[in-house]
Structures are given as C-alpha cells and as structure tokens.
Design a protein around this nucleic acid. Structure first.
Length: 1110
RNA sequence: GGGUGCUUAGCUCAGCUGGUAGAGCGUCGCCCUUACAAGGCGAAGGUCGGGAGUUCGAGACUCUCAGCACCCACCA
C-alpha cells in the first residue's frame, strides 16, 4: 500500500481541484454561481487587493484592522530590507492564525450550498494535513504583496543591487535612532512566531532529504524507532527525538551524508484493540463484522489518525527525511516480511508446532514472553489432600490454582525427600475426577516449600510442562481458548470460567474434607501487558523462530564490538537475555498484521511460500510425487494460515526493510549499518536485540554501530508518566502552553477508571494552578538535552524549561544588541581594512574554541547535558556577561580599527554560537542566523547548510584568557569593595590601585565602565591610608577613594570621641583620687583600670576611623 | 534468587584518570545601568546515605551496612 507516500499528493490534488473550481466559478460559469464566487478572493487577491477592486474583499475585511500591523503609507518613503523583512514577518504571523479559518468561513458563507457542502467535506478532510501548505500559500501571497508594496515604497535606488548603500543609509539612522534595527527583532523572544515560519521552509527546500553522494565516505544514519501509527507523541518520544534530531543536524552540518529514517509501526495488538473498542462503542463486534471488513476499518482508522504523530514531530523540529517515510504494513515492507519469513523457514529457523505458550484468553491470542508482565498480588495457598489409590493415606499438595488440579497428570516429590520416598511409583486418586495419577520424583520440587508435594499440570504450567516431558506424561488440557473448562474436565465443571471453576472445585473439595490448610500467600500473577488479562499457559499450534543460532550471532556481534552500547552497562542486560533466550513465538491470532505466508492442504500439509501461486505449485509438485509413489491423493484448495505475525517481527527488519532491501541500492550501501540507535532500555529485548539478530544473517551487517540507551522520562515526583496516574504531559502543551481547565480535561478524558478523575483533577490543579505557560520548542529541546546525562532516568521539571526559555531570550537579546551595533556598520568583512583586536577579542575567540571542542566531545560521547552546558555557559557567562560588556567599552572609546575589530568579533562569535547551538535549538538559531550571518560575512539560505564549527586548538590564547581572568577578578573586587563600603549604585568613585602600570592602563577603561568607577588612579608605592577596606587580587592592591559625604559618619564618630574622652577623664580623675585609691577594694580599682584601658582602646579606633574619613 | 543503577545545597542534577565541593531553579538583600526585569550584582545554604579500609590526601578507589528505583527469573 502506498497510502503514506500518496497522502501529500492527494492533498495537493485536492487543493488544485479546489483552486480550479474557484477559477471556473469566478469565470464564465453559471451566472448564479459566478456572481457568488466573484466575491471569493484567492489568497493572493485577498492580500494584495487593499481595496483596489470593490468586488474583492480587502485584507481588512478578512482580518480585523486592529490585527494588522501598521503599514507605512505609500508615499515613496524609504524602506530598508530589514524593515521589509520585519514587516513581512509580523504580517505573516498575524495573518497566518486567522486566514485559514477565515477562508473556510467565507467559503461556507458565500458558496452555493451544494458546492459548499462538497468543498466543506474536502476542506474538513484535508484541513489538518494541509495546514502547512496553506501556510506556504499565505506566505507566497504575502511575499507577493510585499514585493508590490516595496515597489511603491522604495526609492529609485535598488537595494538588491546596492545593499551596502541601503543598509548604510538605514544604519546611519540607527545610530541616532535605533528603531529600525530594534524593530528588526521583536523586543522579546516569541517562539511561536519563529517556529511556525521555519519548519516548512526547511522541509520545502529539501534540507532533510537523505544525502546520497556515494563519493562522500562519511555517512550518518539514525533510524527512528517507529512509533505506533495511531499513537500520539509523549514525553519519551519528544526526549529521544530531540537527541536524534540534534545528532542528525550536527552531522548534517559536519558535511556527512545524512539520513534520519522516519516511519510508523502498525502495532498489531495495540491498534486492533483500539479499533475493537471503537466498534464496541458502536455496538458492533469484530467477529460479526468479519475479517476483511475489520481490517478495512483499521486501515481507515490508520488513515485518519496516522499522521498525528508525524505532525507532532514536525512541531518539535525533527529533521527526518519525510520523503522516505515508511509504514511497517506498506507493500514494500510487507514483501520484505514475507521474504524473510520464507527464507528463515527454508533455513529451518522458523517452524510450526504445538507448544505451551502464553495465551491471553481475552484477546484469544498467543503473546510472547516479553509481553507478559508479572505483578505480585495477594493470593491463597490451598493445601489439598490427594488420597492414595492403595489405601487411606493422603498426599497433601499445595497450590495457588486449585482449578488446575482437574488437569493434573502426576504428583511430584523431591527424589531425596525421605518423607515421600515410599510413595514414589505409587498412584494417587485425583479427587473430583476419579483419575489415577502416578507419584513421581523430580529435582524440580523444593522440599521446603508447602508440603513438599507438587501437583503436575503440564498443559497449563511451564514448569510442569518440562516435568511432564521428562517423565513422558501426556498433558491433560482442561481449558478452552477463552479459559473455560473443556470436555476433559468432569461434566459438572464444563463450561465454567476458570474462576468460577476454582470456587466450585474448592467447595467440592471442602465437602469431601480434602482441604487440609488454607494459607494466605503472595504470588506473582502474569498478565498480558496490553489487555491486563491473566495469561493462561495453553497448548496451541504456533509458529516459532529458532533462536539459538541467531542469538549466538547477536552475542558475537556485540562481543566483537560491531554493536556498542552507550552506556556500556546495558551490554550485560543484552547478553544476559540472549544467553537465556527461548524460541520466539511469532504467530498471533489477530487480524491486524502481516498474514503468515503459509498455506495448508486438506491433509494439513504446510506450504510456506511468497505467494499463493507459489504455494499451489509446491502443492501440485508434492501431490505428483505422491501419485508417482502410488499414494492416492485428493485434490483440494489451499487454505491460507489465519494468523498474523508479531508486530516485532516486522520491526526487527526495520534497519534494512526501510532501505530497499533486498535490491541493492545506494541507500542500503551507505546507511547500513546505521550510526546509532537512540532508544529506551525497555525495548532492548523487544526490538534492539531482534534487529541485531535479524539484520546480521540477511545483510551480513550489523543494524547499527552504537545503541544509545536513554533514561525514561518521569514526572517531577519521579513517577512513571502514565494515563492512569494522570500525570502525563503532552510535549506540545509545553511548547504551546495550556490552560488549567484544558489540562485537567485532557488528563481525565477517557480514563480506564473514571473514579480517578477527581483525584487527578485536584492534583493537577495543585501542581499547575495556572496551567502551563508556552515555552516554545527550543526551550523544551534545550531542557531535554540538559537533562540527558547517562545512566539516570529523567525527572522532568518544568522549572528547568523556564531557565532555558530565559536562555533563548538571552540569546535573542544578545542578537538584538549585536544588530543594533553592527548592522549597517563595518564589521570587518573586508580583510584589507585594518583591525586592532583587543585582549578581550582574543579571549572570547579562545573561549569559543574551547566550547567548540567541548561540544564536539559531548556529541561523540552522547553527553547532551555537557553539550547544553557548554553552549549555555559560553553564551551567557562569557559572551553576554563579559564580552558584550567589554565590547561596549571598546565601541565607546576605541578608534576605527578597534571598533571594527570589536564589531567583527561580536558578529563572528555570535554567528558561531548560533551554528553551535543549532542542533539543539534549531528554530531560534535559524531565525537569528538569518540576521547575523551577513554581518559575519556568511551567506546562505539556512544555518542548516552552514558548516558546524571545527575547533582549532592552535587558536587557544591562554595569555588572553589569563588577562581577562585577571580583569574579571579586579572587577569583582571593585564590586565587593563598593558593597562593603555601602556605596550607592549611582555613586561613582575613583579607584586606587597599586600594581603593574602597563596592565592597569589597559584595564582602566573596562574597570571604569564595569565597576561603575569614576576613574582608576594608579598608585606608585603603598596605598595611602584611607577609610576603605583594601582588596588584594594577585599582585594588585586596590581600594576605593571615598569622597562620599562622610559628614554624618564623622559627626557620629566625633560625638563618640567626646563621650569617650569624657569617660576617660572621669576614670582618670577617679584613679588619681587618693580617697578612692585608698578606700575602694582592690577589685573595684582593677575594674576601673580595665574600664579606662577599654575606653582608651576604643578611642584610638575612633580616632583612626576619623582620620581615614578625613 | 540473579542483575543494574541511584543516595552530593530547600528542589533537579553535574562533578572526567583521587588534589581547595559546582550549576540551574528556589530563598534573601540591593539595583527598572541606554540588548535583555524572561535582566544585573551580591549573600546565605553541603561533616557528598552510615561505617571501615587503601592513601600524604577520598565525593571519586576497595569492602561493608542501610535506603530507594528498575530489570530478569521464579516455589507449586
């Protein structure tokens, strides 16, 4: 089926037809329709008309006037390109929101009803998918309008051919009035506006397309773990997709051939269940509908909801090659599935047989071991007496599932168990059935548990099955496929459900006095991961893949290092599973999935073939041979196997089925093995290991070189996000924001258990009283990156998003600053002109080199947290906090060459930062790069096509780094001094510094500006004594020269001095008084002396302070 | 029962081959300084889960104990 690839064509086709219809109606169509249709403008007309044609609504009719940006009057005023871009951008943003709605509205209102209905249906059908196309139509229209507008607005000078002049003219105004360039970027960062604009541009221009240049030896490929086709994007996807997109964009920018292979999975069980529920809601049963109709129905559901997840991925900026999108049930991929099945069967690696499998009685299908999830539940251990056939004695067996006793074929004891040795080989009478069953001895029995006797039910227990095989006991199945008792059970129990049977068995045993003991017991209950039904081991005919040789190859591939896990410790998990693997049950008794390519004749012979024709041919061949051998045969038609394959069977083939295998082609040659698989640990077994095992034998190559295992995304409390817990977050709600009511509505809708709704609503209200603000895609992606450290689950905390949105805002504003100062000015693009880089310029370039090296290492090691940090710190802590501030000083004071160097550095470093950050935050970097790149001498349609910076070690300038470190220290020391001295922020003071005069003279202007000083006074020799504390930084001693108003302080100190002097005088007088000395006790005299000394000391301090203030 | 992680500031987490404990958010104080209040400057806050060992020196290495989380296998 080519539905996927046809979708876009279909949409285009519909649009075209709609357009054609419009044109016809507008033209010489039927008179009635013609007049009505004349009122409906094309988008271009709507945007361009502006009231020129009374028959066509103007822009303001479609969009309320107050929503339109003010347009300059058409008076021949000069408009700069930046202005025009800005105008276009704003206009586009505001229009975009309203237009498609408005158009639909107008169409509805003004079209004749019959056509209207048809078009309505068409619009409704395409509206979602076509949004992007409408966007580009709107864009095109607006571009057209603006071009027309600019013709009127522009001076005769053509800015296209003389951009320097035009920019210079605008730049000249910028110095006096920065508005043109401030306006070039909105005052603050608004993600929605940017994001809407760029994705379609990238996609339209084919930037995501796979590189197929075979002369380039560097190829980079990531396989998207195909999400469920009918699913929606959750936080785990968003997290992993962010990392994959960053990796893809990084390597694309490094010049690799790049492919991010997208696609979706048919997700057999999950999808079938969803559609079955829909049918139930309509009161239709799947079986009543019939297989073909049901499958048809699932396809329809897939068509309706199938693109939801890929639309969401686009919102996150995922740069997949959508043209190569695949679906596991596409014709091509289905053919690969059949081919692989047939080949494996030919090699004897697929077989069919009656085996004990995990059976879901609700789904009525086998499920694989992996799909069974055991959970501890409270149960009971019943001790039941089995009377010996020979006499009055009993053997007591313990069981948690008494109903299965009806299928018992033996009682087992441990061979060394002295208590029971006498009974081995004897028989017991199985209660309720009257069957006689043997007592056997087997190591499997744990004498310490229960009574030491185990009932053996081979047909419904995996361990018992093994015991049965060892002792050649015939299994005695007692359940039907929906877990009711079958005819092997005594008549009284037939038809009962397994739990009803349990009750009845227990009651009957009790009546017969055969229950010896009832003990509460915790046990693990195996449930199907999908339906939650308790799984019943069941003997059924199923298809299996023989795993031993495949597993061996899978283990070897990892051991040889062909596939490497990151972090490495997952290798152990992988190895452990593969060494203990059992044969893989691949048949499912479902309707939605790949039909097993096997046919049966009336005698039950199996013919595995690629097509029915092939199977028939083999059948005829076999019959001929038997006829020749003289066997009588009856002709019969072949019956197709009813079962479908496990979803994971087709997923296991993903690495080569998506690349056009088995046909040799460039993509297969270049992108297998793929570079890295990014996924969660939860599908190492389901998918990762199976891809390794299936890809190796069919292609001789590993499916991927590395497997990066991400953590799981949990909520802020560390809980797993799940619908039933009501703690799910939709990544797009973080991007776009959501109100509290809508969020609660979302979380409580379609709950399995509606009683939880209230608790969830309350918890949600508590946690998000105001809902979730819009953070934008970039902030979300940056957050994911920063949380992606190794070996840890991710507790998703919205406050981190907050921080990273602020980062985006910082980047935005830094760019505004650079544009204000550099746009229209000389940024040193002409290498002939003299430049005079300062130590600050050299420093920031050096820091940039370090950050680039760190980023490169982070990508190599999948340390996205370090990557995010490197970018964050460089941008904020170095570039914005320091370099930009230093640059202000240089621009204010420097000569022409120094200013040119400063602007050059400002622009070039920012431009590099934008490229550096682009893999993580693609949207904002693209928007800003468009403005910054020309200033840095770079040109190109997209930052995506610009090369990622290569770190160049030799450019590290440690001398400059030391100098700036010193300058930072000095600045901080000044700030400390100011705060210690309680100097008002507005107050400027001179700073006295003693130290290397040459350096200080270089630092002085920066210090004056950054530390808000009046001047820097360089002091030879020791610093003069003064009131301020002295700071020491390295070899430098510095102090503020306080010239603040100290009169109040002086007055206070003066008063204090007077008081002290008075006290001292009094004390001295006392001590000089002979009467006092003579009569007072010595202790008192000593005290008085102490007092005097204390006063004297305090007075000395006060005097010192006064002197300092003076 | 087997395995794998984790335990560092109020919260979320960094901390590479052992060498003076870090970031973001939150809190508090002062500033609406001409890119940015989604900002700037500053401050408080930690015997790095407990114990032992190796070492001149341990958040890091070894052992042990405890707690938390997850995976696998299971005793009927």
């Amino acid at each position: 089926m080519a539905e996927q690839s046809n979708r876009k064509d279909e949409s285009d086709e519909l649009l075209k037809r709609a357009d054609a219809l419009l044109t016809r109606m507008r033209g010489a169509g039927t008179p009635a329709a013609g007049s009505a249709a004349r009122e409906i403008p094309t988008l271009t007309e709507a945007a361009a008309a502006q009231g020129t044609d009374p028959g066509i609504p103007t822009l303001t009719e479609i969009v309320p006037a107050e929503r339109l940006p003010s347009m300059p009057a058409s008076t021949g005023e000069v408009i700069s390109r930046v202005q025009a871009q800005n105008l276009e951008h704003t206009l586009y943003q505001r229009l975009k929101r309203d237009l498609d709605q408005q158009i639909t509205q107008i169409v509805k209102e003004r079209f004749m009803p019959d056509i209207g209905t048809a078009l309505d249906a068409a619009l409704a059908k395409i509206s979602m998918d076509v949004k992007a196309d409408i966007n580009s139509m709107v864009r095109a229209s607006i571009e057209e309008t603006l071009r027309a507008q600019m013709k009127n607005l522009r001076k005769p000078v053509d800015t296209e051919t003389a951009p320097q002049e035009a920019e210079a003219a605008a730049g000249g105004r910028a110095s006096a009035d920065p508005s043109p360039f401030a306006a070039a970027l909105a005052k603050s960062y608004e993600p929605a506006a940017i994001e809407a604009r760029w994705y379609s541009t990238w996609e339209k221009n084919g930037y995501f397309r796979a590189g197929l240049d075979e002369s380039n030896p560097q190829c980079y490929c990531i396989l998207l773990p195909p999400p469920n086709v009918t699913g929606t994007l959750h936080m785990g996807h968003a997290f992993q997709h962010t990392l994959m997109d960053a990796l893809t964009r990084y390597h694309r920018m490094r010049g690799y051939n790049t492919l991010w292979q997208p696609g979706t999975d048919h997700a057999g069980i999950a999808t079938q269940i969803v559609v079955e529920r829909q049918l139930e809601a309509e009161g239709i049963s799947r079986r009543a509908l019939g297989r073909d109709a049901f499958v048809e129905r699932v396809w329809r559901w897939k068509e309706e909801s199938g693109s939801a997840i890929t639309r969401q991925m686009r919102r996150l900026g995922a740069s997949c090659d959508w043209a190569r999108e695949r679906f596991t049930m596409d014709e091509g991929l289905s053919a690969v599935v059949t081919e692989v099945f047939v080949r494996l069967h030919e090699q004897g690696l697929i077989y069919r047989g009656k085996r004990l499998v995990n059976w879901d009685p609700v789904l009525k299908s086998a499920v694989s071991d992996l799909e069974v999830e055991s959970e501890e539940e409270d149960g009971t251990l019943w001790h039941i007496r089995y009377p010996l056939a020979s006499g009055a004695a009993f053997l007591v067996v313990a069981t948690t599932r008494p109903e299965t006793m009806l299928g018992d074929v033996a009682v087992a004891v441990h061979p060394d168990d002295a208590r029971y040795q006498a009974y081995v080989g004897k028989e017991v009478l199985l209660p309720l059935t009257g069957r006689r069953i043997p007592v056997i001895a087997d190591d499997y029995v744990d004498p310490a548990f229960g009574s030491g006797c185990v009932k053996i039910t081979p047909a419904h227990d995996f361990n018992d099955y093994q015991v049965g095989l060892r002792h050649r006991l015939e299994p005695w199945p007692i359940f039907t496929l929906d877990a009711r008792l079958n005819d092997n059970a005594p008549a009284a129990y037939r038809g009962l459900d397994r739990y009803e049977a349990r009750e009845k068995v227990l009651a009957d045993l009790k009546d017969q006095g055969l229950i010896a003991q009832v003990v509460p017991h915790k046990l693990m209950v195996p449930r199907c991961g999908r339906t939650g039904a308790v799984v019943e081991p069941m003997l059924t005919d199923q298809w299996f893949v023989k795993m031993d040789s495949l597993a061996k190859a899978g283990l070897d591939a990892v051991a040889r290092g062909e596939v490497r896990f990151v972090p490495e410790n997952w290798t152990a998990t992988y190895n452990d599973w593969l060494t203990r693997i059992q044969d893989w049950c691949i048949s499912r008794q479902l309707w939605w999935g790949h039909r097993i390519p096997a046919w049966y004749d009336s005698e039950g012979n199996i013919f595995v073939a690629r097509t029915k024709q092939e199977a028939q041919a083999r059948h005829r061949q076999a019959m001929l041979e038997r006829v020749r051998a003289g066997v009588r045969v009856t002709a019969s038609d072949l019956r197709h196997d009813e079962d479908v394959l496990d979803t994971w069977f087709s997923s296991a083939l993903w690495p080569f089925s998506t690349l056009g295998w088995p046909a040799d082609n460039p993509a297969l040659r270049m992108y297998l093995p793929s570079s890295v698989l990014v996924t969660g640990f939860d599908i190492i077994f389901f998918w990762v290991a199976r891809m390794v095992m299936m890809t190796l034998p069919f292609t001789g190559k590993a499916p991927f070189r590395e497997v990066y295992i991400t953590g799981l995304v949990r909520d802020a409390e560390g809980q797993k996000m799940s619908k039933s817990k009501g703690n799910i977050l939709d990544p797009l709600d973080i991007v776009d924001g959501i109100g509290p009511e809508a969020l609660i509505e979302k979380r409580t809708a379609s709950l399995m258990d509606p009683r939880q709704a209230e608790a969830i609503a309350a918890a949600t209200r508590r946690q998000y009283p105001k809902g979730i603000p819009a953070f934008g895609t970039d902030a979300l992606r940056f957050t994911f990156a920063s949380l992606a450290s190794h070996g840890r689950d991710v507790k998703f905390d919205l406050s981190r998003c907050d921080g990273y949105r602020n980062f985006c805002n910082k980047l935005w504003n830094a760019t505004r600053f650079v544009l204000m100062n550099c746009a229209g000015s000389d940024t040193g693009i002409d290498e002939q002109l003299p430049v005079e880089p300062s130590v600050a310029d050299r420093w920031i370039v050096s820091r940039l080199q370090r950050a680039e090296a760190e980023a490169q290492r982070a990508f190599r090691e999948y340390r996205f947290d370090n990557l995010a940090r490197a970018i964050y710190e460089l941008t904020w802590d170095e570039y914005c906090d320091w370099y930009v501030e230093l640059a202000k000083v240089q621009l204010a004071a420097g000569g022409e060459a120094r200013s040119r160097a400063t602007r050059r550095t400002l622009a070039r470093v920012l431009e590099t930062i934008l490229r550096l950050a682009h893999p993580v935050i693609p949207f904002i970097t693209e928007a800003l790069w468009q403005k910054v790149a020309p200033l840095a001498g770079k040109h190109g349609p997209s930052v995506m096509l610009a090369r990622y910076p290569e770190p160049q070690r030799e450019k590290l300038d440690e001398a400059a780094e030391r100098e700036i470190a010193l300058l930072k220290d000095l600045t901080n020391a000044c700030r400390t001094l100011r705060s210690e001295m309680n100097v008002a922020p507005s107050q400027k003071l001179p700073l006295l510094i003693q130290g290397d005069r040459g350096r200080l003279e270089a630092f002085a202007p920066y210090l004056v500006a950054l530390a808000r000083l009046a001047e820097v006074v360089i002091v030879e020799g020791p610093l003069p004594a003064a009131g301020a504390p002295v700071s020491i930084v390295g070899d430098y001693r510095l102090m503020l020269k306080i010239e603040v108003d100290t009169s109040a302080e002086r007055e206070r100190l003066h008063k204090e001095r007077l008081r002290l002097e008075a006290e001292i005088a009094k004390a001295q007088a006392k001590l000089e008084n002979r009467d006092f000395i003579g009569r007072a006790p010595p202790l008192i005299v000593a005290q008085e002396k102490e007092r005097l000394a204390r006063f004297a000391a305090t007075l000395a301090k006060v005097n010192e302070q006064l002197q300092q203030l003076a």
